[in-house]
Nucleic acid binder design. Structure first.
Length: 783
RNA sequence: UGGCCCGUGGUGUAACCGGCAACACACUUGGCUCUGGACCAAGAGAUUCCUGGUUCGAACCCAGGCGGGCCAACCA
């Protein structure tokens, strides 16, 4: 992973390591629930979790999040382990299980109750839902919210010992029923479930919820970076609450003293074109027999991909290609296919297989003769060695689609009277076409071969454009080939209520009577090939009729010829997308909610309303600025404080609105180590020309960090503005001489490069150059 | 209707603390070739969601808007 194009997560981890957070150690975890098979979306997470650990010299745990006994099973856990190993990753130590921590989790819960932060609720499920409120309506406290600690403790103990039925009691955290974040409205921590757990059996009848088990498991395992997907964003507040309100050592420990203290970071999950990714929908495809199990080659599961013939290297490469970010995405299936082809192109030996055979008799080739022709496994550009021989005889089989009675324009395969090359063999010419007397179907081609062209070369140097694959009729092996295509024909099948409607009925086409060259006979299942000119295939573990080998098509070769037909369609699609894009936007201004809030505040506090008016009438500020400045007492005070030392309403307003408001997004104005006076001083320095606007931003940043007098900072740093052309001239010349290519482009009319040169000099001078003077100089020099 | 997250070529991502909008896939054309593959070369494709503002200079900072997503399981 290159330094400059790292994703935001790796940047964050790198900066943590650099800052020595947790002594610079990195511990991640991959936490699947063992209730289904891993799919390519999980592969993205795996590559992230294990990849980050690997790249920063850390470790990654495998932890099964097995807190819901009714859906989980050991056999899924084993399959998940197999898939992770197959991808090429190994976890630190043994597989871990949230269920290993049930006793400790219980202890932490007891402590939480003692700390007054949790209570046992005997409301019904419906009541709890009712009391929780909605996204727009705050919730109301449960009648049991203030149950005495002793009572909750006793009840919780009885929940554990199995005295109560499912659904009668739950343990809840006591947080805030009116929180705008729904996750914080007294979330459930434990529920009663009289069910046999796949690992703990009947030892427990209460089970922790995800939001309780997950942060604690992370903390217990010493996870430093807990990476997950975007839909857990709201859970992070609760995650932090749990970590901060529990003690590493129950009873004696200090609150929130976990070391390392785990932090959750979210990134977007993978969405892929033409498939579904939700576990529920995948399970549905399996249970409804739309596919042949979790490892059906059409499934986006790792088991399916593997059976399809995709190698783990391709999947890891794909994960590299798509990157990691926070924007919702839908990745083009072509990107996956590219990764697969790229991998197989470099590794899969080439052999010949004919899918839909057409008989070819070479009339001038001796009957009964067979010669073994040398055929390399790889083309020279791949660089791998190895070859086998293929038998050539009088009767051959070629691909039916490689012959056309009336060849269309641009077709350069076989046609009556035309010559093509049989790959690795001879040039043949088609002389005659034999048809079925009743159906008129072409059943055989009668050809002649040129004995001088053995191995495919042309001694006379004639150029033959077409080369087709073939097998010997006699020696080739019958085999079954399964052609897989995308499962859905809609790019986003999940968009509509019923994704079944978009199922592609021809996602599997079975070719029962294909013929493959004999060299592959003894190869093991799982062997990858390129069937020349057709695509990449893998030998399946199934066998077909009469013990025939079965081959799965992994992916087709790129085929511009075949694509010609679809081009018109494709073009229309793109046009439609463009039109849609042009249609949206340009919406009229709606209501200004921030403005509304400030107006309401001013209505309640007349002194702010007065200031608002005064800022406009007396100070001549535009309404928008006046509104912002008078929407908060502290901001208004700071503004006026600045005016006392520097009476430039417009300048000061700009600085407060544009720079200060940014800082106020995630901190309180009171916590700033400076006040209005400093802002006034800073603006004064800019306006009297002492420092450039650029420098002022640096000074401001410093002010935010540590406070101080701007005049002092400028003096100490020696960052006064350079306005003397004589002082700048040499630097400008240096910048121009140092970038002759850009200078030439500028002179050629690329005027946007002016900023580039200004930037160069700014960098050189630490932002001290007077931009106007500088710009004039650059323009002069570049003529 | 509340809170939070996110908007950059067709797609996925980059772009240091404001200074040449970059890379990969896909696409087009040409070259090479015993695979209509691979490879090589060239090319096209972006009003950085919109409107204002700040700045010599904005994808990036400020304000507002628009659009998309997530959250109201005793699932994870």
């Amino acid at each position: 992973m290159s330094e400059e194009s790292r994703d935001f997560i790796r940047k964050m981890v790198a900066s943590d390591v650099l800052a020595g957070v947790n002594g610079g150690s990195v511990v991640t975890r991959f936490p699947p629930e063992p209730n289904g098979f891993l799919h390519i979306g999980h592969a993205k997470a795996i590559c992230l979790d294990f990849g980050v650990a690997e790249e920063f010299g850390g470790t990654c745990n495998l932890r099964f999040d097995d807190t819901n006994p009714t859906t989980e099973d050991e056999r899924y856990a084993r399959a998940i382990e197999e898939d992770i190993r197959w991808l090429g990753f190994d976890w630190n130590g043994p597989s871990r299980y949230a269920s290993d921590y049930f006793e400790r989790l219980y202890g932490h819960a007891v402590q939480l109750i003692k700390d007054g932060l949790a209570y046992v609720d005997s409301s019904s499920e419906a009541e709890i839902r009712e009391y929780r409120g909605t996204v727009t309506k705050p919730g109301r406290p449960s009648p049991h919210r203030d149950r005495p600690v002793e009572e909750s403790l006793a009840l919780f103990g009885r929940m554990r010992s199995g005295e109560f039925e499912d659904g009668t009691y739950v343990l809840r955290a006591r947080i805030d029923m009116a929180a705008p974040n729904m996750k914080m409205r007294d979330p459930l921590l434990y529920r009663i479930r009289h069910a046999t757990h796949h690992r703990t059996g009947d030892e427990w009848c209460i089970y922790p919820m995800y939001d309780w088990a997950h942060p604690l498991s992370d903390a217990i395992e010493g996870i430093t970076h807990s990476l997950c997907t975007l839909e857990f964003l709201d859970n992070r507040t609760l995650y932090d609450w749990v970590v901060d309100n529990t003690r590493p050592h129950v009873e004696s420990g200090e609150l929130g003293a976990w070391q390392p203290r785990p932090h959750q970071t979210e990134s977007a999950r993978l969405n892929l074109d033409y498939t579904v990714m939700s576990k529920r929908k995948l399970a549905e495809l399996v249970s409804e027999d739309r596919v042949d199990g979790w490892d059906d080659p059409r499934m986006p599961t790792l088991a399916g991909l593997r059976r399809r013939g995709v190698r783990p290297e391709a999947i890891r490469r794909f994960c590299d290609l798509i990157g990691v970010a926070k924007a919702d995405n839908r990745v083009d299936i072509g990107t996956l296919e590219h990764a697969i082809r790229d991998d197989l192109n470099r590794t899969a030996p080439r052999v010949m297989c004919v899918l839909r055979p057409l008989r070819v008799e070479i009339e001038n080739y001796p009957e009964g003769k067979t010669e073994e022709l040398e055929a390399p496994y790889f083309p020279s550009d791949v660089g791998l060695q190895g070859s086998r021989t293929v038998p050539f005889s009088r009767v051959l089989l070629i691909e039916r689609t490689d012959f056309e009675q009336d060849p269309p324009k641009g077709f350069y395969r076989l046609a009556p009277g035309r010559e093509v090359r049989l790959r690795y063999a001879y040039l043949i010419t088609c002389n005659d076409v034999v048809r079925d007397s009743e159906t008129g179907e072409v059943v055989e081609l009668r050809c002649t071969y040129d004995p001088e062209t053995r191995g495919g070369s042309t001694p006379d140097g004639r150029n033959v454009r077409g080369t087709i694959h073939w097998v010997s009729c006699e020696e080739s092996l019958p085999c079954e080939v399964r052609l897989y295509d995308r499962l859905f024909f809609e790019p986003n099948p999940e968009e509509d209520a019923d994704f079944h409607e978009h199922l592609n009925p021809t996602s599997l086409v079975i070719v029962p009577e294909a013929r493959v060259e004999p060299s592959v006979a003894e190869d093991a299942p799982g062997t990858h090939y390129q069937f020349e000119r057709l695509g990449y295939f893998v030998r399946d573990s199934d066998t077909g009729d009469e013990g025939r080998p079965v081959y799965n098509r992994t992916v087709e070769l790129k085929d511009p010829w075949a694509r010609r037909l679809q081009d018109d369609l494709r073009l229309t699609e793109q046009l439609i997308v463009k039109v849609e894009k042009a249609d949206r936007e340009e919406a009229p201004a709606g209501e200004d909610t921030g403005r509304q809030a400030r107006d309401e505040l001013r209505a309640r506090r007349p002194e702010l309303a007065t200031r608002f008016e005064r800022y406009m009438s007396e100070l001549g500020l535009p309404e928008e600025d006046a509104d912002l400045l008078s929407g908060d007492v502290a901001v208004a005070d700071l503004f006026e404080g600045a005016l006392v030392v520097h009476d430039s309403p417009r300048g000061v307003a700009n600085w407060i609105v544009n720079e200060l408001l940014r800082e106020l997004k995630d901190r309180e104005i009171e916590s700033l180590p400076f006040g209005g006076e400093e802002i006034g001083r800073l603006v004064a320095l800019v306006e009297d020309g002492t420092i450039s606007g650029r420098t002022a931003k640096d000074v401001f940043a410093r002010l935010v960090r540590e406070g101080g007098d701007p005049r002092e900072i400028v003096r100490a740093e020696g960052v006064e503005q350079i306005s003397d052309p004589a002082a700048l001239r040499a630097i400008v010349e240096g910048a121009i001489d140092g970038h002759p290519e850009q200078a030439a482009r500028y002179r050629a009319g690329q005027s946007g490069l002016l900023g580039f040169f200004v930037g160069q000099v700014m960098r050189e001078t630490g932002g001290r150059a007077n931009p106007e003077v500088l710009q004039r100089l650059v323009r002069e020099k570049l003529g």
